[in-house]
Write a protein that binds this DNA or RNA. Structure first.
Length: 274
DNA sequence: ATTATTGTTCTCCA
DNA sequence: GTGGAGAACAATAA
């Protein structure tokens, strides 16, 4: 389940190995994952050079000069690996991008991940249509705007944060961690949050995600980035810690369902209010 | 055999 | 317009 820190880690790793690499060929065993059509992708990108890697929220972007943008979303289990040419393909490998002396392989057990090839000038419109919120940095993520949006909604805070419209980057793991840090019950209505809680949540989200990026993301379940495994999983306080003592007050961590998602929280430091 | 899993999008309903 | 519930996508593990 790559969330923003994991995608950023993959982006940095790919940047090291793929910058200025020319694509010799593209092969697909699951062409359906290219929503804009694999044949078209093959036609447009063969012979082209990767001039940059970037990221917006959980979307990974391969840049081809000012011509094309390949938007890759890993959804829940998408992974990239770099391999020697001629490496035997593995189960759930879907696409291989061949370079002169190596290949980039996309593997996805769930087949939920997608690729979309856009003309470079369509990129802004694409992300606008996704209604993405700001990046989780002090520079982009304004606390007052955040507070105003929360004020106007009676949605439960956890599912609201997962929508990516308040701020991008949180998934099921980091959202539980952020709410624990800010001591907010995941089912609290957005417009019932106090000024102080909003500020605390704002800070928690930025600090948590930036810290996770610095540690190379979390390598848990089946997810691991290219290169070194991430170390953020060692810092997780509530996710998958059901029954363990809360690091703050020692009350056992509870697991409930919120909006259909497994949700971990401390019933003592994250009390539900009306 | 049934259920849970996770990100996003979509449909149906109150 | 709201927002909640549930489903869909696919595969695997318990």
């Amino acid at each position: 389940m790559p969330e923003l820190p994991e995608v950023e880690t993959v982006k940095r790793e790919l940047e090291k190995h793929l910058l200025n690499q020319k694509i010799i060929a593209l092969e697909a065993t699951y062409p359906r994952m290219v929503l804009t059509g694999f044949e078209n992708l093959q036609k447009e990108l063969t012979g082209r050079t990767i001039t940059g890697l970037s990221r917006r929220g959980k979307y990974l972007i391969f840049e081809f000069a000012d011509e094309f943008r390949l938007i890759s979303h890993l959804r829940m289990e998408g992974k990239y690996r770099l391999a020697n040419l001629g490496e035997i393909s593995q189960k759930h490998d879907h696409i291989a991008v061949k370079f002169a002396d190596k290949q980039l392989v996309y593997n996805d057990v769930r087949k939920f991940g997608t690729w979309e090839l856009l003309a470079a000038e369509q990129e802004d419109a694409y992300f606008l249509s996704k209604k993405l919120g700001p990046e989780p940095t002090y520079a982009d993520f304004d606390c007052h705007i955040f507070a105003e949006k929360l004020q106007k909604s009676s949605k439960k805070i956890k599912p609201f944060l997962l929508e990516q419209s308040l701020v991008v980057g949180l998934g099921n793991i980091y959202v539980d961690e952020a709410l624990w840090r800010a001591q907010i019950h995941p089912e609290t209505q957005a417009n019932h949050l106090t000024k102080l809680e909003v500020q605390s949540l704002h800070t928690a989200i930025i600090e948590l995600l930036q810290e996770a990026i610095e540690l190379g993301g979390s390598s848990i379940r089946t997810y691991s980035a290219l290169g070194e495994p991430g170390r953020m999983q060692e810092k997780l306080q509530v996710y998958a810690k059901t029954g363990d003592p809360c690091p703050r007050c020692l009350t056992p961590i509870q697991k409930i369902k919120v909006a259909g998602r497994g949700t971990h929280f401390c019933p003592k430091c994250q009390q539900k209010r009306l």
